[in-house]
Design a protein around this nucleic acid. Structure first.
Length: 641
RNA sequence: GCCACCUUAGCUCAGUUGGCUAGAGCGCCGCUUUCGUAAAGCGGAGGUCAUCGGUUCGAUUCCGAUAGGUGGCUCCA
């Protein structure tokens, strides 16, 4: 394209963007619900297009999600693939161009059911029957908005349900929608995925078509650009570029191996976590990585979780397994001798690797692996010590994430009506009350998640987000009255009576692997001094002996001060070696040549994100190295050079 | 495990609508150069086009299976 053709094209584009911006502003200020309505309307338009292309399509639900919408469809033997997106989008654009109105109307519930039968929409029929019977549909993962429910006043009051019709497509739906199909903004179909009907693995699997949608094409483009940026900081990509870990087919999926650089990250994190725990009164313990399966039959995990690695023994009749967690092991330390109320709390920590046979499709880089290392701990406490211990732990968690400069979000994971939980419901209620009170008093910004508790107790789960905004659980504090019961743990109180302790489980980082995956994306590989695998790189200007000796001398000094320093004396230009150091995201780079040898001073080049002052600083070599060592020790985020 | 898609050199990617010795950049190795804060020059090595099977005169290309991966679903002690 030459200049003459490109310029008018750009001007036209600019004009479009400008007018769309103006419209977007109007929407933002006057109608805050406009965007969800647009997205929801697009879900209907997509369904309309699909119905035209596949007249036999059966529809599930099609709600609004973050950044867009989806619709679940069942095409029987036919399957949608991403290659079909062009023709679906083309059909959608036709519907949008037609600009037909969305018409709302109501039907009595029985008529609605008849409609679903007549139009051969079994999934809609099932939803309607549930609505009729229970007044709501009680399936996880279903958005009530999608179901045409009008449930104010509670259960079993549904008489009428609402429908929306656009052109030849009619759908059970509560709305709201935009006025007509022409008013839906900019969209793009993204991908197709399998999704079980009503989120249940035992149900048939439908195809879920995802789209992103925004009020204007500029915003849509911005979103797509953001996804591109996020790809660049994907921990799997950076892990390879920065030489942090490898995943080998020979070793197996979900079993990452850490390089020297990656191992520095792991060890620094573990060191920090253990420091915090030691301050909090925790003592290190250690257990082997395999155990008799009997231990897990008693704990109750054996039957609950089939995802284990069994280990067979040639010599004995016993069966063994890799440990999938640590709590049952630690109970045996407690149980090894009689305990007095004076001994409590007993606090044990262990940073150790455990093994879970995750289903293949669930593995994901470092986020979800089959060998995971936890900074785990277990405190055995009296009833009256629970609260202090939970606060003790929350203090550690706060300090960790404050130092790392990572925002947290908190779930209070409690039980639901399900009978999958072990233990006395009264104790459960008590435990949940304690956690909720603490969450409130500690001013955590939490939300309550029923059904998310462990089978042995409620939890405070703490999440951090990756580059795409996906939440990953890292820290957790869990109350447990079940393990002590199952392993018959006791202590003797001041009246010589036998009592049962409670257990408080916790992790600060959670799985080190998962934490690293999020942290690598959070920092885009620009690690703070205390974690940086290579804190300083010395770049030699030439290969002369005096220069090499000088660089070697700096390396020896760095070793004494425990500064991680590398020397690049390769036969390349200084510019190229600087570039390599920048790409490796080394915090401090010093160039070593005749000038430095003469003055015995260096001018550290500071990684851009760490610069707090502009002027270059000249320092003596030892002074510089000591500053680096101190910054690492203090775990500061930015440089003070 | 389920659905859709992907797999070409160490990395990032071209390419072959089924046809002789499969290409580039970076990286690596060698030589020249001895250089001052984001890429010096020249040369070289490196690929059974994931694996196995089928169709075909002929497969890296088409089909199937397997393995690994990507995005979801389910699960996550």
């Amino acid at each position: 394209m030459d200049c003459e053709t490109i310029q008018p094209f750009c001007l036209a584009l600019a004009a479009v963007i400008y007018s769309e911006r103006a419209e977007a502003q109007y929407i933002m200020t006057d109608q805050p619900d406009r965007l969800p309505a647009m997205r929801h309307s697009l879900a209907h338009i997509m369904a309309t297009a699909i119905q035209r292309l596949w007249p036999e399509a059966k529809f599930g639900v099609g709600p609004v999600v973050e950044s867009g919408f989806y619709y679940d469809v069942d095409l029987g033997e036919a399957k949608v693939s991403e290659e079909d997106f062009n023709k679906i989008e083309a059909e959608m654009h036709k519907i949008i161009a037609d600009d037909v109105p969305f018409e709302r109307f109501e039907k009595p519930i029985d008529e609605a059911i008849a409609w679903a039968q007549a139009s051969r929409q079994p999934y809609k029929e099932e939803l309607l029957n549930d609505l009729k019977r229970a007044g709501t549909t009680v399936a996880k993962d279903l958005d009530a908005d999608e179901l045409g429910t009008i449930t104010e006043g509670g259960v079993a009051q549904i008489e009428k349900v609402s429908f929306y019709k656009n052109a030849d497509f009619t759908d059970l739906c509560r709305g709201p929608h935009v006025e007509s199909t022409g008013k839906v903004g900019a969209f793009k179909l993204m991908r197709v995925a399998g999704a079980y009907w009503r989120g249940n693995e035992k149900n048939p699997q439908m195809q879920r078509l995802y789209g992103v949608a925004f009020a204007t094409s500029a915003e849509l483009q911005q979103h797509l650009d953001m996804l591109e940026q996020a790809k660049k900081r994907d921990h799997r990509k950076l892990g390879q570029e920065l030489d942090l870990f490898v995943i080998s087919d020979l070793v197996g999926p979900g079993l990452p191996i850490f390089t020297p650089r990656g191992t520095v990250l792991r060890n620094e994190l573990i060191k920090f976590s253990e420091e915090l725990q030691r301050e909090g009164g925790y003592e290190a313990v250690w257990a082997p990585h395999m155990t008799r399966t009997e231990l897990y039959k008693i704990s109750g995990h054996y039957d609950k979780y089939p995802e284990r690695f069994d280990v067979s023994s040639v010599e004995s009749d016993d069966t063994f397994m890799m440990k999938p967690m640590n709590c049952p092991h630690v109970t045996q330390i407690y149980a090894s001798r009689p305990r007095s109320y004076r001994d409590l709390p007993l606090r044990y920590m262990e940073t150790t690797t455990m093994y879970r046979d995750e289903k293949s499709g669930e593995l994901h880089g470092l986020s979800r692996v089959r060998a995971l290392t936890q900074d785990d701990s277990h405190a055995f406490v009296r009833q009256d010590q629970i609260e202090d211990e939970v606060r003790n732990i929350l203090g550690m968690v706060k300090q960790m994430y404050l130092t790392l400069d990572m925002p947290l979000s908190v779930d209070l994971s409690v039980r639901d009506d399900n009978d999958n939980y072990f233990g006395d419901p009264k104790l459960w209620q008590e435990a949940q009350n304690i956690l909720q009170r603490i969450a409130r008093e500690e001013e955590l910004d939490y939300r309550v998640e029923p059904g998310e508790a462990a089978f042995y107790g409620p939890k405070i789960d703490i999440y951090v987000s990756d580059a795409l905004g996906r939440r990953w659980q890292c820290a957790t504090v869990q109350l447990d009255f079940v393990m002590p019961e199952r392993f018959q743990l006791e202590y003797v109180d001041e009246h010589s009576e036998k009592q049962r302790p409670a257990m408080v489980h916790k992790t600060i980082l959670g799985s080190i692997e998962r934490f690293l995956s999020v942290y690598i994306e959070h920092t885009a590989g620009r690690f703070p001094i205390w974690m940086a695998p290579e804190q300083v790189r010395v770049i030699t200007v030439n290969q002369e002996e005096a220069t090499l000796n000088f660089a070697h001398g700096i390396l020896e000094q760095a070793k004494k001060l425990a500064v991680r320093l590398g020397v690049d004396n390769s036969n390349e230009s200084v510019g190229k070696k600087i570039r390599a150091a920048e790409l490796a995201k080394i915090p401090y780079v010093i160039v070593a040549g005749d000038k430095e040898i003469r003055t015995q001073q260096v001018v550290p080049r500071i990684r851009k994100d760490m610069v707090v002052i502009d002027a270059p600083v000249t320092l003596g070599i030892e002074e510089f190295l000591k500053t680096v060592a101190n910054e690492a020790k203090a775990r500061i985020l930015k440089t003070s050079l």
